[in-house]
Design a protein around this nucleic acid. Structure first.
Lengths: 110, 110
DNA sequence: TTGGGTACTTACCAAATGGTTAGAATTACT
DNA sequence: AGTAATTCTAACCATTTGGTAAGTACCCAA
């Protein structure tokens, strides 16, 4: 008989928490998703609203999010260029996570 | 008049999402909280249930969590040593975040 | 006296992450 | 001709983070 037949299964590759974190645990990731939220947001707007992020990190994260289908990108063939980002259906499903983070922060930290 | 008077305020130091992330965004942090959950859990149990974590990371994170009052630590003066960790009231309030991560993972990733 | 169990600690090194700076591309405006 | 606007890209370096391996301390059991 196992000594620790816990309620919780161990947290290996199949752990849903771990799987989500491998996608979302970057320093900026959830903040970017939070700022895009339900809108179509331009690159420059994001740069201003995610205070302190560098351009390198911002596009790097955006590319990663587009690759992982959390964010979609629409390029307008104009000069000067215009690019809009918005959450995909999958991306929208991360908003409850962000909401919980926001609530925890509001109630206990800020 | 500002061009981008968005619905969302910008994400600076007072952003509750950012504040929460500065506490919780480590690679292992939320997985550890998840594994402790509502129980009293020994160090060795955690080492086994958070698969793949090194001892160094585990105590480092645990110390950090105790310092930040998310986790409490009870040392039993026995040989061999026995130490139990459990979530504080504040720590318990992170479980909804973890739940959302788990749900997102279950529905979309695993 | 050797080994096992438990909870750490330390030192060293490797990899991941993030910041700074500069520049490219294109058109319009002055 | 020079400057501004916007969205990137690239090179370089510093910091942070994480892993490995070994060691400490204590008692018990074989």
């Amino acid at each position: 008989m196992e000594k620790n037949s816990k309620i919780n299964p161990p947290c290996d590759e199949k752990c849903p928490v771990r799987a989500s974190l491998s996608l979302l645990s970057g320093k900026w990731t959830l903040m970017i998703l939070f700022q895009i939220n339900e809108n179509a947001v331009r690159y420059g707007e994001l740069k201003r609203s995610v205070t302190g992020i560098s351009e390198k990190m911002l596009i790097q994260e955006l590319n990663m999010l587009v690759e992982n289908k959390l964010v979609s990108k629409k390029v307008f063939p104009e000069i000067p260029p215009k690019v809009e980002y918005r959450l995909t259906e999958l991306g929208l499903k991360t908003l409850p996570i962000v909401d919980q983070l926001a609530q925890f922060g509001l109630e206990n930290l800020v």
